[in-house]
Design a protein around this nucleic acid. Structure first.
Lengths: 339, 339
DNA sequence: GACGTTAACTGAACCGGATAAGCTGAGCCA
DNA sequence: TGGCTCAGCTTATCCGGTTCAGTTAACGTC
């Protein structure tokens, strides 16, 4: 089955290629009657313009890129990325943009991918995830002048457009909530320490705990996996002055932590309250269901995609704030049992 | 920053565009000395050929497509897709192929996407997931003659190449294992009933149970979500002759089922044994860790990608069998406690 | 009826590669 | 020394769109 080209449409309509191009793109230069005739023929023979030819002459790829820099294992476990992607996708496909995905091993590989995409004109712009402190990708993208939206911040995004949510406020609210329940010994199991949002949350946690006079508030760092989250939990709960509440930087570690606590004979929420970041169906799967800090991640992705398309179109967007994560109390938090 | 083109390389090397093309593609037609000089210059100025131009003249897109037909919510929860994608990606990026992703609402939309991709020459081939019984996508792809590999089967894949794993054998092994432990009342919480692999597993389950004389073996159908999995579990465990072992068609439902069982005061594995399909870190997160039927999903994805590239290259591959899921016994299965 | 204006279209150049066909000079042999 | 071969290049064409500069015909105008 041969693919129809613009020349086929032109031939059947008895006009030139140029006229067909004008007609299909809503440009002036053809009469309304001719435009309708051409559109009808195009639909009839199932014509869709070659993305390559269009990209070549219009100098636009019709695609945006997303490079995911995580090992295959952690990628799978966290629902976050799939949810983000589905939101991005919804926005893109509504505008007939494609999403090009690449999994990379580290930032050097990721920068190489950006450089290649830029040289190949394969994408019109990129979404950047997992912002680090002192992130090398930022200057690399600025140098390439490849349109980009950084999902993360605030801060550390250089001159690039960015979409951020107020994690500091969300964490502050969470600590205040736990303190209101009566907790005084709160610990936090953080994510990878060189991620920018980990840093932001860690600073916010230290600040609010100091303000509320919680002296033994500690943050321990983990890597988002259940194994590490469980191990960190076991360590924290084994200390003489064990915390009565734990805040986890993602849902997977929180679920693992819940398991560890129950395994150690602690009841949740009686002996230990648990709060998870990144609310997801996972938090409602377990028993008790986890109190979580959540937000609409597909909407976040859609927002980022819209912003990137604006940047690609040449509109400077700067730093845009998305909604602040909301605390959804469920069964895993309660006043601490008097001991 | 202007992107270098082949003409820039040619100018600096003092040769024609054609010579550069030959040199970069390893074609004969240039001396080894010239080739090296051209390669050095290309590397120096950071040249990578425009994917659009190459696609236009070589009539190959350098990309393969993956359309995911699931609502945003279920997509996120299951680690399966992310793991599959990371495997596919590993194989593709090693060969400088791109992966184009699209999330669609239903099969009609998916077929429309295939038709558009085909017309736009945006992808060289597609991977088809979640094979249904009487799947409309199969004849549509055959008609388009778009290279495709169906991930699923055996059977129902028409003349398309397919990659399948022997779910029937895996399920048979699982039932035999449970029976060897002493279980006689085994139930199964299946996935969506119109999926081909659900059908295969259901048939295999019925067959082995009949062979072993397990009279009240039942399958109930669910939709892979934790909510539904939990509900189905509650129903099964509330019956007068409740099963002593449950087999779930995915990990998410199994975890939800574990929660429900514990909530109902049953101990696992004492009162109830649980087996999950799709082993993932999730199964090791919970307590007790779940006995699961697992396989290397990234490897499965990589295998599918390799097969698709072979199909794209014109080599007929037919139906290829991937490894059979392996049963990994963990803490959630044990002999049933005498009542 | 000559002239300017404009809508509606055509023809050709162009985007950046791949590739078939043509050209050139060195080397070899008779 | 003339003719032949062949490696090593160049030139030209093509892929399928977009777009700009022309061309043509219809129309209004004085």
């Amino acid at each position: 089955m041969k693919r129809p080209t613009i020349a086929d449409v032109a031939r059947r309509a008895g006009v030139s290629k140029g006229a067909v191009s004008y007609a299909l793109n809503g440009q002036p230069g053809v009469s309304e009657a001719t435009r309708q005739r051409i559109l009808a023929i195009a639909t009839e023979i199932g014509f869709s313009p070659s993305s390559a030819a269009r990209a070549l002459s219009a100098a636009t790829a019709g695609a945006i890129g997303l490079a995911l820099c995580r090992p295959a294992r952690t990628l799978g476990v966290e629902p976050f990325f799939m949810a983000l992607i589905s939101g991005v996708e919804a926005e893109l496909s509504a505008r007939s943009y494609a999403l090009t995905l690449q999994v990379v091993a580290d930032h050097d590989a990721e920068i190489a991918v950006y450089r290649r995409w830029w040289g190949e004109r394969r994408v019109d712009g990129v979404l950047v995830c997992d912002l680090h402190t002192e992130d090398r990708r930022i200057p690399a993208l600025e140098q390439l002048q490849l349109p980009a939206v950084v999902i993360g911040g605030p801060g550390g995004t250089g001159g690039l457009a960015s979409l951020w949510s107020d994690d500091a406020a969300a964490l502050t609210e969470t600590v205040e909530y736990l303190v209101a329940l009566g907790h005084r010994r709160i610990a936090r199991v953080g994510g990878l320490p060189d991620l920018r949002h980990t840093e932001i949350r860690t600073d916010a946690f230290a600040a609010i705990c100091q303000r509320l006079g919680l002296v033994d508030a500690v943050t321990v760092w983990s890597d988002y996996t259940g194994e590490e989250g469980g191990r960190a939990t076991r360590r924290l709960l084994s200390s003489s002055q064990r915390p009565t509440a734990l805040i986890y930087d993602n849902d997977v570690m929180a679920v693992a932590g819940l398991s560890v606590a129950q395994e150690m004979g602690l009841t949740v929420p009686g002996d230990l309250s648990i709060v998870a970041w990144d609310d997801s169906p996972l938090c409602r799967l377990v028993h008790p269901p986890l109190t979580a800090l959540g937000r609409d991640i597909p909407a976040y992705g859609a927002h980022a995609a819209r912003q990137l398309l604006a940047v690609v179109a040449g509109q400077p967007t700067g730093r845009v704030q998305d909604e602040t994560p909301r605390l959804t109390p469920r069964g895993s938090t309660a006043p601490p049992r008097a001991r």
